[in-house]
Simulated assay, not measured.
Amino acid sequence: MTLTFSVADTTIHRIVEQETTFLPAREMFPELTPEMLASQRSALQAAHALDAQDTLILCFQSYVVKTPHHTILIDSCIGNDKPRARPVWNLKTDATYMRALAAAGVSVDDIDVVMCTHLHTDHVGWNTRLDNGRWVPTFPNARYVFAQREYDYWVAQNAKAEVPAFADSVLPVVEAQRADIVSDEFSIGDHVRLLPTPGHTPGHVAMAVGKGRDDAVFSGDLMHSPLQLSFPELSPKFDVDPVQAAVTRRAFLERYCDTATLCCTAHFPSPSVGRIRRNGDGFACEAV
């Protein structure tokens, strides 16, 4: 399993918490027809993205990005001790994530910035840890970056009924005064920029890394499976605005297709990272 990539003056580490079966493909993608799935089944199975029962295999991971000036964590995965609806995430207590950080030569004290593409459960979990019954920031020296539109959306949702991930993994960071709620134009020095990519959630952002060019881009939940490269208009049932998500995804893939930009996906199976290439009316990810 490839866990470390280098591009220009940046090093990227994958921090894998889980890589496992998730949902049946046609349950996750309501508009996926049997014919569409049949056309991709062999390729998806060869890529370890689909099992023999047509269940999707997803990776749940963070990325540690080391630029010449900062050590940045992109998305903080699932977390421990969190009450969650999904059984394999609920109140888990394993050391997998922290072992993966240590294997990358990174401690929680080393992280300068935590950036979240959006505020879903599996992208904010390690923002906080349980300490004597209280949720406290896991990365004590880090500023946590949340996009304004994304944060405002979840404030409104949480006001209607408590959203567990927001309550235990975002609000405690804000209350500890470690959060920066930022506009879409936010950047960190001359190496890291936000890319607005709405649809999956209203304020979803991707992140581009590189000095003067996009050497690497982190797509978050803009896409979940290689299936969406073949069918870019295919949106999962989790998208808040599936029509907007499809438009955003197609535009993103067109932007980076046949370029040198390294695309780091949140949920594609290992190696999860590659370069986007055109393939008919769709695309493919050329592994590196």
Score class of each variant (00 low, 15 high):
3 L>K: 08
10 T>G: 04
12 I>M: 11
12 I>Q: 01
24 P>M: 08
27 E>L: 15
28 M>K: 13
28 M>C: 11
29 F>G: 02
30 P>W: 09
31 E>M: 13
31 E>P: 04
32 L>Q: 00
33 T>G: 10
34 P>W: 02
37 L>F: 05
39 S>I: 07
39 S>R: 12
39 S>K: 12
40 Q>F: 04
40 Q>L: 05
41 R>E: 14
43 A>T: 14
45 Q>K: 12
47 A>L: 04
53 Q>Y: 07
57 I>V: 13
59 C>S: 11
61 Q>G: 12
67 T>P: 02
73 L>W: 09
74 I>V: 12
74 I>M: 03
77 C>D: 11
77 C>V: 11
80 N>R: 14
83 P>E: 14
84 R>F: 12
85 A>D: 15
86 R>V: 15
88 V>K: 15
90 N>L: 15
90 N>S: 15
91 L>M: 15
91 L>Q: 15
92 K>V: 15
93 T>R: 15
94 D>M: 08
95 A>P: 10
96 T>Q: 15
96 T>N: 13
99 R>I: 03
100 A>D: 04
111 I>D: 04
114 V>F: 05
114 V>S: 05
120 H>R: 12
122 D>L: 06
122 D>F: 06
123 H>Y: 07
124 V>H: 04
135 W>K: 07
135 W>T: 07
136 V>C: 01
137 P>V: 08
138 T>W: 01
143 R>S: 03
147 A>M: 04
150 E>G: 00
151 Y>G: 06
151 Y>D: 08
157 Q>S: 06
167 A>G: 10
168 D>P: 00
168 D>K: 04
169 S>Y: 00
169 S>P: 12
170 V>N: 01
171 L>F: 06
172 P>W: 00
173 V>D: 06
173 V>S: 03
175 E>T: 03
179 A>W: 06
180 D>A: 00
181 I>H: 04
182 V>K: 05
184 D>I: 11
185 E>Y: 11
189 G>D: 00
190 D>L: 04
191 H>S: 13
192 V>F: 08
194 L>A: 05
200 H>G: 10
200 H>M: 10
201 T>M: 09
202 P>L: 03
203 G>H: 07
203 G>W: 02
203 G>P: 02
204 H>D: 06
205 V>Q: 07
205 V>P: 11
207 M>T: 01
211 K>D: 00
212 G>S: 05
213 R>D: 09
214 D>R: 03
216 A>T: 08
216 A>N: 12
218 F>L: 01
232 P>C: 04
232 P>L: 09
233 E>N: 13
233 E>Q: 14
237 K>F: 10
239 D>G: 03
239 D>Q: 10
240 V>P: 00
241 D>M: 00
241 D>Y: 11
242 P>A: 03
245 A>Y: 09
245 A>E: 09
247 V>P: 10
251 A>W: 13
254 E>P: 08
257 C>G: 04
258 D>V: 09
261 T>R: 07
262 L>I: 05
263 C>H: 07
268 F>A: 09
272 S>F: 11
277 R>F: 03
279 N>R: 06
282 G>L: 02
282 G>Y: 05
282 G>A: 06
283 F>T: 05
284 A>V: 13
